[in-house]
Amino acid sequence: MALPPFEKKINAASWITALFLSPGILFLSGYLAIYGSLSLYMNSSFKQQLLLHYKKTTGNTYTISVKSIRPAFVLNAITISSIELQPTTLCPKNQRNHLLLNKLELGFPDLEKIPFSRQKLQESTTLICKKIADLKKSDQ
């Protein structure tokens, strides 16, 4: 028994549509959208929360500036680059020292939950502030 000859012409638009609707491409697109939105969140709202929380933790004795906060691609860690600590006028004179850290990497197992949970946001900013304070103490 012979199969009938294939008479339908190949349509490039149909193949491209099928490619873009394949599960692999849809998953990759969704993951990149989540990663991109988390990256934007980290460099806007999360960074502002971190700066405010650090001021409160140090009692306004130091101001902090951060260049960028990047999540790891697998969403299990963050990298904070160019952290600069400057003493304010409220800082005791014997503790005034300027600190500059090029990069700080911290592990966060539930990084994707931070934008949706106020508790995770508080825990993560507290953890980062504690780590920076530890680095500041070890530098002195």
Rank of each mutant, 00 (worst) to 15 (best):
L90Q: 03
S14P: 01
M42A: 08
A18E: 10
A133Y: 09
S138N: 15
F108M: 11
L21C: 14
L52S: 13
K67P: 04
I80V: 06
S124C: 08
K8C: 02
I132P: 00
E7I: 04
P5S: 10
K136N: 14
G59N: 00
E7H: 12
G59W: 00
S81T: 10
G24R: 05
P23R: 06
H98V: 06
K55R: 14
A133V: 09
I83N: 03
D134F: 09
S65P: 07
F116A: 13
L101K: 05
Q122D: 11
A33Q: 05
K9D: 07
F108T: 00
Y54M: 02
A18V: 08
G59M: 01
Y31P: 02
K103D: 05
K55N: 08
T79H: 10
Q119W: 07
K136R: 15
L50T: 01
L99K: 05
R118E: 14
K55D: 04
E105M: 12
F27M: 15
A72R: 00
V74I: 07
L127F: 10
Q49K: 04
L111Y: 00
I10D: 09
N94R: 07
K8A: 14
K131M: 13
L28Y: 10
S68Y: 12
L28H: 09
Y54R: 02
A72K: 00
N11D: 15
T58N: 01
R96M: 10
L19W: 04
Q95R: 09
L3W: 11
Y62A: 03
T79Y: 07
I80F: 06
E7T: 12
T89C: 03
S65W: 01
T126A: 15
K8P: 00
K9P: 04
Q48F: 03
T57W: 02
F108G: 01
G59T: 02
I16C: 10
K120G: 04
T57G: 02
N94Y: 07
I69F: 03
M1S: 14
N102I: 11
N102S: 11
P71A: 02
L28M: 13
L127M: 14
P109H: 06
L111T: 01
L100K: 14
G30V: 07
T61S: 07
N60C: 04
K131V: 11
T79M: 06
G30P: 00
I34G: 09
L28A: 14
M42R: 03
L111S: 00
C129D: 09
C129R: 04
L3K: 15
Q122K: 14
L51A: 01
Q119F: 12
K56F: 11
E105A: 08
S44W: 05
L127C: 01
I16W: 08
L51G: 02
L99N: 03
K47F: 07
L104C: 02
F73C: 08
L50F: 03
Y35N: 08
K130H: 15
L21D: 13
N11M: 10
N102Y: 03
N97Y: 12
N94E: 11
L127R: 07
S44F: 04
L127H: 10
I69N: 00
Q86E: 12
A2G: 15
K130N: 10
Y41A: 04
G107S: 14
Q86M: 12
L106N: 00
N11S: 05
P71T: 01
P4D: 14
L104V: 13
L38D: 01
L50S: 05
L75W: 00
R96S: 07
L104K: 00
M1Y: 15
K67F: 07
I10S: 04
H53M: 04
E84S: 08
